[in-house]
Design a protein around this nucleic acid. Structure first.
Lengths: 116, 116
DNA sequence: ACGCTAGTTCGAGATCTGTCAAACTACGAG
DNA sequence: CTCGTAGTTTGACAGATCTCGAACTAGCGT
């Protein structure tokens, strides 16, 4: 018997369990420039950033919106820590469900233009 | 000297060249259930299908719309042949730009739920 | 208690998206 | 030439999405 997937940590905000993650939702979450940027910054190893650390070109409320889309799609996990909220990629969960997907998206987003 | 990327074949409909394909557009194109289904059916080796061969659960005009989104994102190529239009995946182009991306999306869409 | 910082909630607006029906074009067969 | 098949175009509509500003909540430091 173990903790249900939906509440991984006491301070974690509600997120879909492994069986609730839908491929279309993940792709849709990654298809926005702002969110793709969040994901690539989060991909740096050991990255655990609060929302405002990203210096996104949008207001705070828009930022909240994008982080929620990512969390509800199952791409990131958000944990409250003090007055901020720490964000991490759900790398392992995504790798288990969709092997290679996140890696290739990150490679595509980071390694710009093979022929350049 | 060779034919510009944007007009690969005489009968091919206008499509983005390699340098015009944007990752966000590809992900967005793949993020719709109807279009994802088109892509997976097109992924069968040697698949070259006309639009109506897919028996999509939408009307013809909606179908036209989805094929256009896929073509303009650079995911498929459409070539007129007689009265129909043949669709093929731009596998090589996508593999060159975003190695592993299409493969992992297809694997994710086809191989449903690893733990089932 | 007070204020600062981080983030949320609540409209609201503009644009985009998926869908349809109806009328249309284009090609091939006969 | 006429008909049927394949697909497009147009206009419309409902719902989603991205964005903002303003007001709000919650925790930390002093």
């Amino acid at each position: 018997m173990r903790v249900p997937e939906t509440e991984t940590a006491p301070e974690a905000l509600p997120e879909p369990g492994l069986d609730e993650i839908r491929l279309e939702a993940v792709l849709h979450a990654l298809a926005d420039p702002v969110r793709l940027r969040i994901v690539t910054e989060l991909a740096r190893p050991g990255s655990e950033l609060n929302c405002l650390a990203f210096e996104l070109p949008v207001t705070k409320s828009t930022s909240t919106h994008h982080f929620r889309v990512l969390r509800e799609a199952g791409v990131i996990r958000q944990v409250r820590r003090g007055t901020s909220k720490m964000n991490t990629l759900r790398r392992d969960d995504l790798a288990q469900l969709y092997p290679g997907l996140l890696e290739s998206v990150l490679a595509a987003a980071l390694g710009r233009r093979p022929q350049d």
